[in-house]
Simulated assay, not measured.
Amino acid sequence: MWLHASCKLDFEIPVATPFILMLRPRSGSQQWVAREQYMLNPSTEAVEFTDLFGNLCQRLVAPAGFFSIQTAFDIEVADSSDVAPGAPFVPVEQLPDPTLPFLLPSRYCESDRFSQMAASLVEGINPGYNQCAKIVEYIQNSLAYTPGEGQEIISATEVNQKSQAVCRDMAHLGIACCRALSIPARMVVGYLEPLRPMDLHAWFEAYVGGRWYTFDPTQQTLAGGRVAIAYGRDAADVAVYTQFGDPVEILNMEVHVEQISAPTD
C-alpha cells in the first residue's frame, strides 16, 4: 500500500541548542520512499549522518525562539506483516554478525534479569518464532495498552511490575525476554497506519528463521501499514529527537498517516 505520513514538532528554544533528529525513513526491502519533504523553520543548517544501526540522523543547532520541524513523505509499504509460525531458532554461532548487538542486555532491556522468567514462559514451546509469539501473548495478558499515558521511559524490569503500559514499554519487555532466550531482538520506531489515536509507534522485531519478523504486543491482530524510521537496541537508540543542554519546551506534536493512491510522477 501507499501511505502519506507527516510529523510536525514545535519548540520554544531558550538559547541556541544542539539537536540530533531521527525523522527520515530509509528505503529498503520492506519500504520505498517516493517523495519526501523536510522543512526547518527558521531555516537552519543541518548535517546528515548514518548511525551504527543504519538510521538517517540529522544534526543541527536550533536557534533561540520558536523552532519548528516538519517532515512528510509518500512511501510504499507492505499491506500486511509477515508471520511465520514454526520458523526455527538460529543458533548463536550461526547468526549474522549484524544481529549480535541485539543479543546483549541494554539500558532499558535488561535481558540478563529475565532468564528464568523467559524460560518458564516458553516451556514446551518449539524454539524460535513460536517462543516470540508466546512472549507477546504473555505481555498482552499481563499489561493493558494505554497509549499516551507513559511519558517517562522505563526499563523492562519496571514494566514487568506494572499493570498497564505504552507501546515503547511493551516492546522493551518483549525484547528483554527474547534476548534472554538468545533470540536477537531490536526496537523499531515509526508509523502504523491503523493506529488510533494516531501517534508515533514502537514495536519490536526478532531474528528467527534467518530473517527479522515483526512483533507488536499492542495489536491483537498483527497489522501492516508500518513505516520504520529507526532501529536500535532500545528507546535510548531511537529517539526521534534528542536535545542537549538545558531542557527545551515542546509546544506541539502532530502526526498524520493516510492511505493514498500510488504517485504518478
Rank of each mutant, 00 (worst) to 15 (best):
S111Y: 04
G128K: 02
S68T: 13
I229L: 15
I139L: 07
K162C: 14
V15S: 11
S81F: 06
R168I: 05
A119G: 13
Y231C: 04
L95A: 01
V188H: 00
Y129N: 02
I139F: 07
K162Q: 15
S106D: 05
W2D: 04
T99P: 06
W2A: 08
V227A: 10
P105W: 09
F215C: 03
R196M: 08
C132N: 00
P14S: 07
E249Y: 15
L222G: 12
L173Q: 02
F215M: 05
M170N: 04
Y207A: 05
P42N: 03
H172W: 06
L3S: 01
I69Q: 02
P25Y: 04
L56Q: 10
G224P: 03
L95R: 00
Q94Y: 14
I229D: 11
Q151F: 03
I139R: 14
I229W: 06
L9I: 11
K162P: 09
S80Q: 14
G124P: 11
Y207D: 05
E152I: 14
S106Q: 03
A78P: 10
N55W: 02
E93G: 09
W203F: 04
A228N: 14
A144F: 09
G150C: 14
W32P: 06
L100S: 07
Q259Y: 04
V255F: 05
M117P: 05
P217I: 13
I139G: 10
W32N: 13
I135N: 00
M1C: 05
A236Q: 07
R59Q: 11
G150R: 14
P184L: 01
N130D: 15
M39H: 12
M170W: 04
F11S: 08
L143K: 12
A236R: 01
Q116D: 15
L173T: 08
G86R: 08
L173H: 09
T50Q: 06
D112N: 14
I260P: 00
F11Q: 09
V61F: 05
P105F: 10
G174K: 07
G54T: 08
L143D: 07
T71E: 08
A87G: 05
G65P: 07
I229S: 12
P63C: 06
E45H: 12
A72H: 03
I69R: 03
N55P: 00
D199H: 11
T50M: 00
R59A: 11
L195G: 03
E48R: 10
L52K: 06
V159Q: 11
A262S: 14
L181F: 02
L200F: 10
S6K: 03
P247K: 09
E258T: 00
L100W: 04
L52P: 02
L192R: 06
A133Q: 09
R24Q: 13
